[in-house]
Simulated assay, not measured.
Amino acid sequence: MRVLPAHRLAALATATCLSLVFCAPVVAGCYGVRPTDEVIEVNVRPACCSTDAATLAAKMIVREYVVSDEEGNRQWVDSDLSRLTTAPGEDMVTVFHVHGNKVDPGMARDRALRVYRQLIHRATDDRPMRFVIFSWPATEIDGLLYDFRVKAARTQPVGWQLAWILNQMPPEVPISLIGYSYGARIVGGALHVRAGGDLSGRSLPDAAPDKHRPLRVLFIAAATHSCWFGPHGYHRLAMSQIEHLVMLNNHLDPAMRFYALVPKNCNPQAMGLRGPTSLARGDRKKIECYDCANCVGRSHDLFKYTATGRTMSRAWQHLMYAD
């Protein structure tokens, strides 16, 4: 596992800036979406925490942000899961964005699109992206600690839901996942289930671990146990599904420092504090960690993590298989 300080990340950004001299990216059109890109929302909130495939398929809402006129303006239109279960255009990478806690449906769309715009602003090539907004039931409820604990419990069935969706996709499609805060916990659970594991008894009967190509993953302030990716961890099979994992951590982030207050019967360290622990030896080389304390400070704000150009430059290269 490589732990790289901010100055190493800056060096990577310098190389990226040099590449921009020779490759100008496609300029984003109206509403900040590049003409070559697709934006799809998969909203599993109506299915709540169901882990019944038929219920999930019937109740999830899929919408697409499509071009609506000759000027390139876009609007949301109803769609269906076949938009994801069919192969995208040539060279297109599918990038899932999984948000964190205290996010309602409108916020899920707006925040994800803001992350998308920050990514394409740092694009170093013209490779098209299918950007998928994964929206799960994270609307704030009363009681600070109660809210955190309820949402922590929800990440288990929602992780199964994401695994089921990923399992429907063509095996040859390159996929990347962004997980912020509790979103990282969902991503870890989904990959564990996709590899044939279970989450408190919830598994995929048709899981085929070797069917799909390994994924690229970006964790931002990961609100999940630091030991869960280890050989005996709750998400122990997740690393078998990951080609490479980039982590933006922060030892000053208050949510990471007080993460141990969420569980009632243990005292875990957050993965987003200093990275994963108890990894199998072969998995360490798949992980690249950055401590963002100098840029983010004592904050858990997503957009402080993504505001730094060098961070988004590295994220683009990683998520788009450009490195």
Rank of each mutant, 00 (worst) to 15 (best):
H7W: 15
L9M: 08
V26C: 13
C30Q: 14
V33Y: 06
T36C: 11
D37A: 10
V39E: 00
I40F: 01
C48L: 11
A54P: 07
A57Q: 14
A57I: 08
E64N: 05
A87Y: 10
V95C: 02
H99Y: 06
H99M: 07
G106N: 09
R117Q: 08
T124D: 10
R130N: 04
S135L: 05
P137R: 00
I141C: 03
G143F: 06
L144T: 13
L145Q: 05
L145R: 07
D147M: 09
V150A: 08
T155C: 01
L162H: 05
Q168D: 13
P170F: 01
P171S: 10
L191K: 06
G197P: 05
D198W: 02
L199I: 07
D206N: 15
H212G: 14
A222H: 02
A222V: 03
A223D: 03
H225E: 11
Y234E: 11
M247C: 13
N250H: 08
H251G: 11
A255Y: 00
F258N: 12
A260I: 15
Q269V: 13
A280T: 14
Y290T: 05
V296I: 09
G297C: 10
S299I: 01
D301A: 09
K304Y: 10
K304D: 14
S313C: 15
H318F: 02
L319G: 00
Y321E: 04
A322V: 04
D323E: 11
